[in-house]
Design a protein around this nucleic acid. Sequence first.
DNA 1: GCCAATCCGGACCAGTAAGGTCCGGTTTCC
DNA 2: GGAAACCGGACCTTACTGGTCCGGATTGGC
Lengths: 150, 150
Amino acid sequence: MLRVSKLTDYAVVVLSRLEAEGGVQTAPGLASATGLGEPTVAKVLKMLAQAGLVEGLRGARGGYRLTRPLAQLPLSEVIVAIDGPIALTACVDGGFGLCEAEHVCPVRGRWDPVNAAIRGALSAITVAEIAAPKGLVPTLPPPVPVLVAE
Amino acid sequence: MLRVSKLTDYAVVVLSRLEAEGGVQTAPGLASATGLGEPTVAKVLKMLAQAGLVEGLRGARGGYRLTRPLAQLPLSEVIVAIDGPIALTACVDGGFGLCEAEHVCPVRGRWDPVNAAIRGALSAITVAEIAAPKGLVPTLPPPVPVLVAE
DNA sequence: GCCAATCCGGACCAGTAAGGTCCGGTTTCC
DNA sequence: GGAAACCGGACCTTACTGGTCCGGATTGGC
């Protein structure tokens, strides 16, 4: 656990491609460019558009466009857009203790500082940093298939 | 997403109780003290024992004991003990790109710095900090049941 | 003015993993 | 010798992710 969803991973890839190419690009185009499934890419784009990280242009000749350069886009925003609010535990955030069974629920940990620390760490990293440091490297040289220790 | 499992939450509660009371305590005792299910508490304790965060004493008059004060126990260790290694995405860590389909997998993001940042943030927080800042507050005063906006 | 391309919003289903429980075995104290 | 407790699993149910698909709305081109 403590994972982000695959969609978030895809989002970074798509955003990276979006910036590398520049301009307006269609969902099918991005799908073939990234090698991901077309419906999946469309889903990711829709989520990013709802969050305002990309702009969707409808109609023929439509597509998606970045609203910000990736260097100004903290990773935390992408995660929030795809995975929802960053809260490590279920019953926190707002913290009125309104669990279903508040009087029974013994989990009175203060996870808020933890959440804040995670948010801080994730806000300090931009998508540009993890997308592709210097240009895209679509394929690595095939490594020697050594025996992988399980 | 980006959640830790409930077991991790329980672990913090159990550890907190373990330190508050001091000495050796049994799984059933901790269960009733925390209000959690007995098998669940036992499961958490077993995991913590395997990770060396608590010490299990077998036999009658057995139980569990802390191996370290909580102030010296970073939260990251608890998370690793319960949730496994901290790696936000599936195909990272070690990073030989040995996904099942490496030549197809377009996810070439560098998540390693992100993982490192998360680990750093989680290592800087001790269990003592989130467990119960000043003594246990087992029950909050019942808040006025205002209408909760959905 | 019609048609095609494209985004939009949702419903839908299969696979996986968390959450929680239970059982037999072993160790230790009374 | 018996009871109390830990140990190491297996087991099942539920929820959610991951991925696909469809009808509707919008816009540009012929």
